[in-house]
Structures are given as C-alpha cells and as structure tokens.
Amino acid sequence: MELNAVYVIVAREFKKFVREKSRLFSALARPLLWLFIVGAGISRLVPVESGVPYTQFIFPGILGMTILFSSIFSSISIIWDKEFGFMKEILVAPVSRFSIVVGKALSGTIVSTIQAVIILALFPFLGLKLNVIQISEAIIICIALSFCISALGIVIATFYESYESFSVIMNFIIMPMFFLSGAMYPVRMLPPVLQFVSKLNPLTYGIDAIKHVILPSIGGRMSYDFSFHTSLIVIITTSVIFVFFGAKAFERKD
C-alpha cells in the first residue's frame, strides 16, 4: 500500500469538502428534517411503552442515515471522476488499486463521521443523557460504519460509467437501504421477506450497534435486533469484503 497516495486522495476529498460549505449544510438538512419533523409527527402515534420516546428511538437510525447518504455520495464521486476524466490520472499512476480504494473509503469515512458527529451533538435536544464513554463509543461505531458504507459505495460506483445513473442509485440502492435498516422501526416488526432483506444490509447492524450504546434502557417491542458483538463483527467483515471487491473491480482492464 502506498501511504503517500492514500494520504493525497483523502486530502483532495477533504479539501473539497471544506471548500464547499453549502454541501455540508444541505447534507445536514436531510437528517434534521427526518429527526425533528417526521420523527415529531410519528412520535404522536407511537406510545412511550418501550422506555424511550420515538424521537429518541430513531436517533441512531438518523445517524445511520447521515452516514449512509454522505458515504455513498462521497464514494460515487468516483463516477464523476470517471466522467470528467480525473480517474485516468489516478489509474495511470504507479499506485496499487488497493491503495486507491482504501484512500477513497477513508475519504468517505472522514466526511461522513464529521457529519454524524454534528448530528450526534444534538442529543440534548432529544432529552437524551449521554456520558463521555457512550459518546466515544458511538463515534467509534460511526467511523467503522462510515468506512463500511463508503467501501460499499466504491463497489457500487465501479458498475456505473456516467452520472446519469445517479437517480438509479438513489432510488434503488440508497432509499431501500435506509428503509430496510431498522432506522424507523425495529427489524423484527417487519414481514419475514423484508426482515430477510434487512439482515443483508450492513447499515442495519451499524444502527443496531449505536442503539446498544446510546439507548441502553430500550426494551420491549422497540428493543435491539442483534447482539452488540454480532453487529460489530458484521460491520468489520463486510468492510473487508467490500474493499477486496472494490480493488478487484478497479483492476479490470478490457
């Protein structure tokens, strides 16, 4: 692995992220709308029977949503790079495909984690009380989940050549991933087929792990779907698999 190359790929992405502040604001608008409008609306329908109000229940899911959107968007910038030619500059460099994928995944990780931390900082407004340990653990899970979803985004990006495919990715990958992640409702309450699909979604495990950390008192019907360890293992294993396939897909020459 070429560390210089990984560093500069991340630095480029970070520089652009800092430069386009409007991108950050619009990225934060989505989770805020869901949290304070959709969440507030639905909470009227859901009785506080499981130890936490609904707005608190969806908080881990909204963190997951923030990570999902920003990680995938960051990774599919690869499609833009292909379209505008910059990808060629990277591909003809004496750099292994593995380094390129790791660099891109880390770029998405940093950008996503920053956004997730900003949303996480809103916990007092939801009436949550978190201590330093809980916050640190939540951030660590956000980092791991961001890396996992960014790597998945790279695998997705290798299938597409132009940004016309963006709406396909949005409607057929991102939105279903969000709705089938246990973000808005526990997975166990879904019909069996949807439960099965949800269990194939790495985001589900990330959100569940965050629930373990910041909603320890949750119980009953709203409770966790998996054990904390299962979730962590799934996130780490799928990350490795996605990086491997991403690097393989980049290798392709026809």
């Binding site: 070429e2 210089n4 190359a5 560093y7 500069v8 630095a11 480029r12 500059e89 990277i90 460099a93 004496p94 750099v95």
Partner: peptide, 9 residues
C-alpha cells in the same frame, strides 16, 4: 500538481 507529485511518490 501537488496531488500528482504525491501520487508518484
């Protein structure tokens, strides 16, 4: 240019 220089070590 700096990006390129890093990429080429």
């Amino acid at each position: 240019l700096v990006f390129h220089a890093y990429l080429y070590n």
